[in-house]
Design a protein around this nucleic acid. Structure first.
Length: 550
RNA sequence: UGCCCGAUGGUGUAACUGGCAACACGCUUGAUUUUGAUUCAAGAAAGUCCAGGUUCGAGCCCUGGUCGGGCAACCA
């Protein structure tokens, strides 16, 4: 029952184009540069581009924008493909801007022939100098008036490797006084004697983004080329090339990139965090990278729902990370099998329970009616959460306290009769009595307790490592940071501790999601070994109780 | 001193293209609950950046401001 959802501005453009007969079908593309891992911001773009094609029966190409050999690597290509697939999308074709190097070269020759491009011998500094500023016009390069023949010859020599890096560039001849800085004779080709991850050493001149992107769109007959707002000023140049080259008129549309609280979405800075070891790699569960959130336990479904909900518009935004967490919980609530794990144990001894006895008690895996069950061993010695006991509880505390009763989930009701402490006054053991008739499922005790807590049999408990994650940054709006962003990293973003799990968790597998009762959603980390299971906390449970205590 | 975008509850996105501002998250209250979770119900919260104008009628159109963002890499 897909409700009549209002269209975002790009969908409106597409529907208008379709209705006007401008296109009969649409083609989009997702164009990452393989110089880093994909993050949540890219997920928004992926969902948009692929989503549009799906909605309107078109296709989406995956095109790597690999025009700068010095920063790009095959490792990134592979991770990007994996991430897009994981998110659940299929591209029509896997393409590379570098595949178009021959055509792009011909385009450049065409521009030169039309007198619209020239080879400039100026240094990088001189070119910057002559470029002017946003408020001051630029000045023509002394090489601007070279003849077509000379330009053709020089450009061929550039390609042939007769010059060193930086010695010459090819520039478009547009207008050095243009109010749009990008139209002030932009550089089309630069010399880089560098090894390219795909073309190897075949080329020593490489096209700039502006001279590659639009033409690549055009060659693929992309109808709607969707990018982020910072490319708005590039559109004028994008259209200029299409017009002068007389090629298929792809059109560019821009939307606001995703920003999230306590999160940083700059590939450059994320790379820095990785290189400087502030995190343990691109897939560190604290990273906003897709590989990071995947390892953390976020699901593709949750991310798609999130991208769907945040919408697409042109105004700057800062989205509450809590919204993403909402969708993660929403999905995990239905797919996460329930398990009991005690994080900060305190011993409970059930004085009226036989010392050698072990009962296997069933407990449902999911909250729904017909849920499957697993069994949990129950015995005289148990672990419960330290915070589930209070010696002097406030009025509305309905867990365990001296003389107070609590329900052990899926087991019995117990009453605390004695508190044992060490010399430091710390509680070391709680001696309790259980109500035999209160067994879960066949409770005839008639006793009603409000509190229900999780537990695990001390004798059978499986020690596991849990990694508890918190926000990577201390500040809500990372874009407001002045000075070094690394000074604002949250020192408590990762807490590692040992916890005691019910035996069933020994069978946990990669890719499975769990809800550790009352503690949050977790998944098995790939660092796990046969003898040591490691669980990542994906997200905590919603908590409406502890929060108003603060 | 320039050019280009944008402005709607705390946050994000809507408003059938000019007809009494809606949805989601978050928040509050209550019910249910063997997870203080989930679920369910109710509620608070903007009068649409400001000032003019057009109109019977403006969040939508026009004019002028204000504020925010972007633009001077041989990066994408």
């Amino acid at each position: 029952m897909a409700e009549e959802k209002s269209l975002n501005f790009i969908e409106e453009i597409i529907e208008a184009d379709l209705k006007a007969g401008k296109h009969t079908t649409i083609a989009t593309r997702f164009p990452p540069e393989p110089n880093g891992y994909l993050h949540l911001g890219h997920a928004k773009s992926i969902c948009l581009n692929f989503g549009l094609a799906l909605k309107y029966g078109g296709k989406t190409n995956l095109r790597f924008d690999d025009t700068n050999p010095v920063t790009e690597e095959t490792e990134y290509v592979e991770s990007i493909k994996g991430d897009v697939e994981w998110l659940g999308f299929r591209w029509a074709q896997e393409l590379y801007a570098s595949d178009y190097f021959p055509q792009l070269f011909d385009f450049a020759v065409k521009l030169i022939s039309k007198g619209l491009a020239y080879v400039d011998d100026s240094t990088s500094e001189q070119i910057a100098e002559m470029k002017g500023t946003p408020t001051q016009p630029g000045k023509d390069s002394p090489y601007r008036t070279r003849s077509v023949e000379e330009n053709l010859k020089l450009f061929a020599e550039m390609k042939a490797g007769q010059y060193r890096d930086g010695e010459k560039v090819l520039r478009a001849k547009i207008d050095m006084t243009h109010t749009n800085m990008l139209m002030r004779d932009p550089i089309l080709y630069r010399i880089k004697h560098a090894h390219h991850h795909r073309t190897g050493d075949a080329w020593c001149i490489y096209p700039m983004y502006d001279f590659a992107h639009g033409q690549s769109d055009s060659l693929e007959q992309i109808t709607h080329s969707i990018c982020t707002l910072e490319f708005v000023p590039h559109r004028e140049l994008y259209d200029w090339f299409i017009e002068k080259l007389e090629i298929y008129p792809s059109r560019q549309y821009e939307f606001a990139r995703l920003n999230m609280t306590y999160t940083m979405m700059s590939k450059r800075k994320l790379l820095q965090l990785v290189n400087e070891k502030h995190v343990n790699g691109w897939d560190d569960p604290r990273m906003p990278t897709l590989s990071g959130v995947r390892r953390r336990g976020y699901t593709a479904q949750a991310i798609r729902d999130f991208c769907d909900r945040i919408g697409v518009a042109k105004r700057d935004n800062l989205i509450d990370i809590g919204l993403l967490e909402f969708f993660v919980r929403e999905d995990l609530n239905t797919i996460g099998a329930r398990r009991m794990v005690v994080f900060d144990p305190v011993k409970v001894v059930i004085t009226n329970y036989e010392e050698t006895k072990t009962e296997m008690l069933p407990s449902e895996n999911y909250p729904d009616e017909g849920s499957t069950v697993r069994t949990m061993p129950f015995g005289r010695d148990l672990w419960i959460e330290r915070e589930d006991f209070m010696e002097n509880p406030p009025k509305k505390y309905f867990r365990l306290a001296p003389g107070q009763m609590v329900r052990l989930k899926s087991a019995y009701i117990i009453a605390c009769e004695e508190v044992i402490k060490n010399d430091k006054g710390e509680v070391t053991e709680l001696r309790c009595r259980y109500i035999p008739e209160s067994r879960s499922g066949s409770d005839t005790s008639g006793i009603n307790v409000k509190g229900v807590i999780h537990w695990v049999s001390a004798k059978h408990a499986l020690p596991v490592e849990v990694r508890l994650y918190d926000r990577l940054f201390k500040v809500e709006d990372v874009s407001e940071i002045e000075g070094d962003f690394r000074d604002y990293l949250n020192p408590d973003s990762l807490k590692v501790q040992t916890a005691y799990a019910e035996p069933e968790l020994g069978n946990a597998k990669r890719g499975e999601h769990f809800q550790f009762l009352r503690m949050g959603y977790f998944c098995l980390d790939p660092d796990s070994t046969h003898s040591k299971k490691i669980f990542n906390r994906t997200v905590t449970l919603r908590d409406t109780w502890t929060k108003d205590k603060k």
